[in-house]
Design a protein around this nucleic acid. Structure first.
Length: 534
RNA sequence: GCUCCGAUAGUGUAGCACGGCCAAUCAUGCAGGACUCUCACUCCUGCGACUGGGGUUCGAAUCCCCAUCGGAGCACCA
């Protein structure tokens, strides 16, 4: 009926007819359906074979004819990029790639005090963007552009759209809550400009004066009534280029409003906590005669494995030595994930598949890990790593060389491991053993356990067929002269023995069989590996 | 207190602007199986959802109202 709207008025008559037909059809069998269809509408047969493939990736953007998309990622560099910031980097850059636009990274570093920027973090962001294949076309640092903001502040003050307010915080709140203008709202433009100059000259102390935009003091939403746009901060900015040059700093809604226009932003995607920003900034755009970019919002993202965290909280924990640094494998920072061997492609896909919804999401990293595992499985060489090692002595055997393949399906050759009469196996495997059990030492030979403490076994052959037929368990092992391996994982620290050849895999991702994928981080004093995932 | 959003399987998504092609997509997860000298990869099979209640309509996941739940803003933070 969607196709034939002219039948709509007679829907009542048609419904029973259709019902009867459907009943007849469902009583038939698939073969007769097909025969009928061939007779009635052969062109539909083909449609049956076409699988519905919904469009993959991000939803299309509302782009106007001939419009060049400009989008931005605007972090405050008060710590390194985390999984949360990654969403902004990936989604914005992905849209820009899709529409051939330009991608801008803008450091919203206009708070030298409460959310004080961190000098190293500026570089970290650029580094991580590059790693994520999201190289910005332009880098803007807000703290370099105070004169621009001042220019517009003066314009608005001169036009009578803003005023310098001397109310105490709580006093203004009272006025605002009762929808009353504060005493300073009525000052003339001249007065306001005079006060503004005094602010810039440093004649007022912090909290003494603030610039407000005149909105609608009686607006039904209290969040929109005459909000502040400039305040006085006498703490010097951490960037040496800026330091103590300014004492009057813009607030986010002002800085962002001006920059988004100045930089020609066409689309903005940001957290829904900033949803009111559009309405607030709308006043500024109206006063200046500007057109507001198109906006989209996303909800909060919570990662099961990391729970709630804040940059400042992490910073404190690192300073107190709880974590080894910003790339500690337990941390949700991009640097940590990189060190663990998570590939940027996996992260991009993870973020893009998550999409841009306003619902708050609480997601597990399993999906990211599954994605990464598929990517790294082929390239990762296999090795044995025995955690909680227990010495096993084997009787009735002679020294030999084991040659397990570097990869189970890819032909990349073998590693060689010399084996004498002793080797290591996992305590975990030993726990499941009793005297008399047969067990296969993977890629070596079969033994029968003759004693648990001390752990001993005797050689009973090397046949794999026997293992298959008798469903003998296969466990991995490590040579007695193996190297000490420490694995740092989000869920703890594992120590044990690994094959000496692992030392040749510095900076590569390997799979420790029956343990998981790890990135070999250093090989100087024993091996240190960072755990990626199972 | 005032204001603004949102709600589809365990998790994340598609579908909702324009109501019938939805017996609701895909991924992950879980269960079973095949392959395999790893608990990896790959392949097959299965499990699993429209928050609740009203309304509009021949027909509602889709439109309207109410309820419930969740989130956010009302900062001289971003």
């Amino acid at each position: 009926m969607g196709e034939c709207p002219n039948l709509r008025p007679r829907a009542k008559e048609i419904a029973p007819v259709i019902e009867k037909i459907l009943k007849d059809v469902s009583e038939g069998d698939p073969k007769s359906w097909r025969r009928q269809l061939e007779a009635l509408a052969p062109e539909l047969i083909e449609e049956l074979n076409v699988k519905k493939e919904p469009e993959k990736g991000l939803k299309p953007l509302d782009v106007e004819e001939g419009e060049k998309v400009v989008m931005r990622f605007a972090p405050n560099p008060n710590g390194p990029p985390t999984l949360g910031s990654t969403r902004g980097i990936v989604v914005n850059s992905e849209y820009v790639k899709k529409y051939g636009g330009s991608f801008i990274i803008r450091f919203d570093d206009t708070d030298p005090q409460t959310k004080r920027p961190m000098l190293e973090a500026y570089g970290w962001y650029l580094e991580d963007c590059r790693w994520l294949d999201a190289v910005p076309d332009k880098v803007v640092i807000a703290s370099d552009r105070l004169p621009v903001y001042y220019k517009y502040a003066e314009k608005l003050l001169g036009l009578g759209h803003a005023y310098v307010c001397f109310c105490k915080g709580e006093d203004f709140k009272k006025y605002k809550d009762s929808k009353e203008p504060c005493p300073h709202r009525g000052q003339t433009a001249e007065e306001n400009l005079k006060y503004w100059k005094k602010m810039l000259a440093g004649e007022y102390e912090e909290k003494e004066a603030v610039v407000r935009i005149k909105t609608d003091i009686k607006h039904k939403d209290p969040a929109l009534r005459d909000y502040g746009v400039f305040r006085i901060v006498k703490t010097p900015h951490p960037r040496p280029e800026v330091a103590d040059r300014y004492v009057v700093w813009p607030l986010l809604d002002f800085e962002g409003a001006i920059e988004d226009h100045e930089l020609g932003m066409t689309h903005i995607i940001r957290g829904k906590d900033l949803m009111d920003s559009e309405k607030r900034q709308g006043y500024i755009y109206d006063y200046l005669g500007w057109k507001y970019p198109k906006t989209t919002h996303w909800g909060r993202i919570k990662i099961h494995e990391f729970g709630k965290f804040s940059t400042s909280g992490l910073r404190r924990a690192i300073e107190e030595g709880e974590y080894s640094g910003w790339d500690d494998p337990r941390l949700p920072t991009l640097r940590a994930l990189r060190r663990r061997g998570i590939l940027p492609q996996a992260i991009r896909k993870f973020m893009i598949d998550m999409g841009v919804g306003e619902t708050d999401v609480s997601i597990s990293l399993d999906t990211l890990y599954a994605e990464n595992r598929k990517l790294v499985d082929i390239s990762s060489n296999r090795y044995f790593f025995v955690w909680n090692p227990v010495e096993l002595e084997i009787l009735g055997t002679s020294p030999r060389t084991a040659r397990p393949p570097l990869h189970p399906t890819e032909d990349r050759g073998c590693r060689e491991i010399e084996v004498g009469t002793k080797l290591y196996v996992c305590q975990e495997d030993v726990d499941n053993l009793k005297v008399g059990d047969s067990i296969r030492l993977k890629d070596l030979y079969n033994i029968e356990i003759t004693s648990i403490t001390p752990l001993q076994g005797r050689y009973i052959g090397a046949s794999v067929e026997v293992v298959r037929k008798e469903r003998i368990r296969i466990i991995h092992w490590a040579p007695i002269d193996g190297v000490h391996v420490t694995v740092l994982a989000p869920h703890g620290k594992f120590e044990g023995i690994g094959e000496p050849q692992v030392a040749g895999e510095l900076d590569h991702l390997v799979q420790f069989e029956r343990f998981g994928f790890c990135r070999i981080d250093s090989v100087d004093n024993g091996i240190f590996a960072y755990f990626a995932h199972k």
